[in-house]
């Protein structure tokens, strides 16, 4: 369903999305010396009220995908369908109309809130920008504070007076101000302490149930992604290497990278003394000069000759699971 796209109406459908950053040298006379393909041919769909988890190591392009979806940055190629409208090329007033439906929860609970604004001003900002009347703003802020578990007295306080978890609640309240249908959570819990992280995860899940939100949940923490997501996509060097139903991905990963990623996660379980784990050798190659063929072949424990020359396409493994690996032929 994720790949073929035959099934029901999706809220978000991304096709062949790409973002290439030029690499420049020189200050005055800038010249382009190369391109980083941060995102290269990514396709997926997210249904109403569902969550797609996007995982991968730093530099794999997962955060760039999130920023592309809310048009913080402009795509180089591809389309982003929001409820049937392609928003990937809209700008100005046309894009502004869609902004109320697209929101973003940021990673850093410190830098995502303007230190000079009160909680009320922060939460109301999307409403102010969208031109809501003042009375409506005030009422909405009260609703939102209650919704995310903050006290009414908090509205006149400043961000520095709050702990990381509370700040993240403020950021979530701001994201929900315009009643969006789709929210990108970019590492939204990874900067928090473990015990607080669980509160925010629970909050995000509850809000999804109550408000019917769809999430793109970008994170590097696989156990949190598994808990949050319906479907999971694994990215490596700008491409999706495996995508599918969460249960299948975690129970029977098809791509060697997914397998390695899963076995690298230390599990807080007594039985989890490390045994047969697939340790990946080497590091992420430079995205400026990615390997030929399958980008993973330099670290892949099962790579063979074909992997160096031919790039594998995503192909269906099972119903609701696809992976890009020559071994699946």
């Amino acid at each position: 369903m994720l790949i073929e796209g035959a099934a029901g109406p999706d809220l978000i459908r991304v096709d062949n999305l790409a973002k290439h950053f030029p690499v420049t040298r020189g200050a005055l006379l800038r010249r382009v010396v190369g391109t980083v393909k941060a995102v290269d041919g990514v396709s997926f769909a997210i249904g109403h009220g569902r969550t797609l988890g996007l995982v991968g190591e730093s530099g794999c392009g997962k955060s760039t995908v999130g920023r592309l979806l809310v048009r913080l940055i402009d795509p180089t190629a591809g389309s982003i369908m929001l409820d049937g409208t392609d928003i990937s090329r809209l700008d100005g007033e046309a894009m502004f109309q869609h902004r109320r439906n697209l929101q973003f929860v940021f990673q850093d609970p410190m830098s995502s809130l303007n230190p000079r604004m009160t909680v009320e001003q922060i939460i109301a900002e999307p409403l102010v920008v969208q031109g809501a009347p003042v009375a409506e703003q005030r009422a909405r802020v009260s609703e939102l504070l209650a919704l995310v578990g903050l006290a009414p007295a908090h509205r006149t306080r400043y961000p520095h007076e709050f702990s990381g978890g509370q700040r993240q609640r403020i950021g979530i309240a701001r994201a929900l101000a315009t009643n969006p249908r789709f929210v990108v959570c970019d590492e939204a819990v990874s900067a928090l302490d473990v015990s607080v992280q669980a509160q925010i995860v629970n909050l995000l899940k509850r809000l999804q149930r109550e408000l019917g939100l769809s999430y793109l949940f970008v994170a590097h923490d696989l156990s949190v992604v598994r808990h949050m997501s319906d479907d999971v996509a694994v990215m490596y060097l700008g491409r999706i290497v495996e995508i599918g139903d969460r249960r299948r991905i975690f129970a029977a990963p098809a791509h060697p990278y997914t397998k390695a990623l899963l076995s690298s996660v230390p599990a807080p379980r007594q039985s989890a003394r490390r045994e047969a784990r697939t340790l990946l050798s080497g590091e992420l190659p430079s995205p400026l000069n990615p390997p030929s063929g399958c980008a993973f072949h330099t670290r892949c424990p099962v790579a063979f000759a074909r992997c160096k020359v031919e790039r594998p396409e995503l192909r269906s493994v099972e119903t609701g699971q696809a992976a890009a690996c020559h071994l699946l032929d």
């Binding site: 015990s195 992280q197 669980a198 629970n202 598994r226 599990a267 807080p268």
Partner: peptide, 21 residues
């Protein structure tokens, strides 16, 4: 703390979070 970490192998509906900070 143990309840706050979602397990990788099994499904839980809600995490047993510790309230407050």
């Amino acid at each position: 703390l143990l309840g706050s970490v979602p397990p990788l192998e099994e499904e839980v509906d809600e995490l047993v979070a510790i309230e407050g900070q």
